[in-house]
Computed example of a mutant assay.
Amino acid sequence: MTETQTRLDILAIGNAIVDVIATADEAFLEREGLTKGGMQLIDAGRAEQLYSRMGPGREISGGSAANTLAGAAALGARCAFVGQVADDQLGAVFTHDMRAHGVRFDTPARAGDPPTGRVLILVTPCGERTMNTLLGASHYLPMESLDEALVREASILYLEGYLWDPEQPRAVMRHAIDVARAAGRKVAMTLSVNFIIELHRADLQGLIDQGLIDILFVNEEELLCLTQETDRERALAMVAPKVPLLVVTFGPDGAMAVRGGERFTVAAEPVERVVDTTGAGDLFAAGFLAGQAQGRSIEDSLRMGAIAAAEVISHYGARPDADLKALVATKLG
């Protein structure tokens, strides 16, 4: 099957999670012993306790790779998702939301405990989010959930770093990489967060050193963590030659892509007011990958990422509210 014969642009494997978002002041974070802007894993008991103390919340389906697909689909990409929910109310919510975004989602729900994963997100007045994650059923993704034919039919296999920690889904992703590369497909990965890098640095570096990753998404902190460097330039010099396309985000300072030694940069899109930074990196990846799937230049793909990221931080939740196609058409043509 050639590139032009693919039925999908992006197939992603990631956590299937529902976000519960509420506003909170810094005093609340202090009382609960939470680090502003951080992410911690919690068990079911702590999730129930924290939820009972939070203010009114908004339930919005999330998960890093799932958010990326929602944004990419909104931009016209043909997308499918592999992720595990439980056979419960939040699992039904997640399934409905993915399909409503136009993303193919066929993974059967898992019976019994643990429940569908959820992230309790506390947003302070400055727009910073503090995340408390119950991974739940998402970390019990079985090998039989992977449709190898679907992997071969997708131009890009996109892997979520958050899901690299548990053994069972990590095995699924490793197998998916083998299938994708055997079919001549591109493999993209987001490293997601520093603690995953710290736990699996040698493993992740091995994927990069072996040339198994074609597109790598990191933010600056993750790049420095991966390389154990303190200098951006030295870190870039260590990673960029090993990855055909390296994409690094710098928050309000924009982003950079490095391909074959050539650098491309983009400024962050202006935002009237930052409401909630949840999903900024996910939607940046959405715009970039959609641009690549459409055959656009690296520069235009970076712009699409910046446009999608700016839209998502202007409201609560990690999925787009506005018409991303229209925004891109207005700004890029």
Rank of each mutant, 00 (worst) to 15 (best):
L236H: 09
T2D: 08
G91K: 10
S314Y: 08
P115I: 10
H101F: 13
A235R: 11
A257C: 07
S314Q: 04
A306I: 07
G63E: 13
D165I: 01
I121S: 08
T190Q: 14
A268I: 05
R234E: 15
K186I: 00
L223I: 02
D321T: 11
N67A: 12
F250Q: 05
I17E: 01
H175E: 06
G14M: 07
H175Q: 07
A202D: 13
D282S: 05
A100D: 15
Q84L: 04
V193F: 11
N67R: 05
D209A: 11
G317T: 06
G261R: 06
R296C: 14
A293I: 11
C126H: 09
F264G: 02
T2L: 03
R319I: 12
L199D: 14
L324T: 03
F250T: 00
R152D: 03
L146S: 00
R104D: 13
K331Y: 09
D25P: 01
G14T: 07
Y316L: 13
E233A: 13
A293M: 06
A293L: 08
T265Y: 08
A149M: 05
E148C: 10
T4L: 12
E222C: 13
P166V: 04
T227Y: 11
R104E: 13
T133R: 03
N15M: 07
G254M: 04
D214Q: 05
I208K: 13
Q292L: 08
G63V: 08
A293P: 02
F284W: 09
A318D: 08
E262D: 11
I17D: 03
Y162R: 06
F264C: 04
P115S: 15
D282I: 02
A24V: 08
L226K: 01
G55C: 07
A280D: 11
V187A: 02
G14A: 07
L8T: 06
E160C: 11
T230M: 03
I177V: 12
Y316K: 04
C225K: 15
R259P: 05
D97H: 06
